[in-house]
Simulated scan of single mutants.
Amino acid sequence: MNTETTTPTAEFTQRFTSTRRGARLARHLAVHQLDAWGYAYDSELSDTAALIVAELAANAVTHGRVPGRDFELRLRLTETTLRIEVSDARGERVPMAREEPAPDAEAGRGLVLVAALAKDWGVSDRSIGKTIWANVVLAEILVD
């Protein structure tokens, strides 16, 4: 388990309904929060974060959904890293990145995309459910 040890300079946490609408809202609010922190819409960091949040939130509402339970998005900004965490209530369904989805597969590319965009990613247990996290190194992203 990889945990970030640096102190966040900024943090955002919000819960969303475990629906497609909740997943879209999570992506929208993530880029809005990054803009408030000085990372403009359509910057490389904003676009990267939007894709990662979209994939992790989609997985949370598709595979981690428990009726009546929300999922949670947390963004932690440090001087060097943006950490994206999405938590859901299904601890027994742990995702694994697939090597290569079949060319005609309609699903299975989400975590491959997350792995390609993030420095690292993983899964952490929590008292109820799990947290999927991804770290994006700011120095590797050209900030506008």
Rank of each mutant, 00 (worst) to 15 (best):
L56F: 12
Y41G: 11
R76P: 00
T9E: 10
R69D: 14
I84W: 02
N59H: 12
L25E: 13
T19L: 09
G108R: 05
E92P: 00
D70W: 03
A139T: 10
H63T: 01
R27T: 13
E55S: 05
E140G: 10
M96S: 14
R20G: 11
G110A: 10
T9D: 09
S124Q: 14
S18V: 01
G122V: 04
R65F: 00
Q14W: 05
R93F: 03
T3Q: 14
R98L: 13
V31A: 05
G68A: 05
L111V: 02
A57L: 09
I132K: 01
R74S: 14
V61E: 15
A26E: 06
A115S: 15
T9I: 14
A102Y: 13
K119M: 08
L56P: 07
A50S: 15
R76A: 11
V136Q: 03
P95N: 05
Q33H: 08
D42A: 14
E72W: 03
P101S: 12
N2L: 09
T19I: 13
A23V: 09
I132M: 14
R90M: 01
M96G: 08
A40N: 09
H32K: 12
D125M: 10
P101C: 09
E11W: 01
V143Y: 04
V61F: 11
T9G: 02
P95T: 02
R24N: 13
R65N: 13
L73C: 01
R83H: 01
D47Q: 13
E79H: 13
F12W: 08
R69C: 11
E106N: 07
L113P: 05
A116E: 14
R83G: 02
G91A: 00
H63K: 00
L75M: 06
A40M: 10
D120E: 13
L82W: 04
F12Q: 03
G122A: 10
S46G: 15
T80D: 15
R93T: 12
T3D: 08
V86F: 08
R15I: 02
V112D: 01
I84V: 15
A139D: 14
P8G: 07
V86D: 04
E72K: 07
A58D: 14
R93Y: 07
L51K: 01
S46C: 06
A40D: 15
L45M: 06
E106F: 10
D70S: 11
V31Y: 00
A115H: 10
A97I: 05
V114N: 11
R90V: 02
T62E: 15
E44M: 09
R24P: 00
T17L: 14
A10W: 02
E106K: 07
A115F: 05
E100V: 10
R24T: 12
R76E: 15
S18Q: 03
T17C: 02
D120Y: 01
L138D: 01
G64A: 05
P67G: 03
Q14F: 04
S124P: 00
T62R: 09
G38P: 06
R21P: 03
G64H: 00
A116V: 04
A26F: 07
S87D: 04
T7D: 14
L34R: 05
R93G: 01
W121V: 01
L142V: 10
A115P: 01
T5A: 08
D42W: 09
V114M: 09
L34E: 04
T6H: 08
P8V: 04
W37Q: 02
F71T: 00
V143F: 04
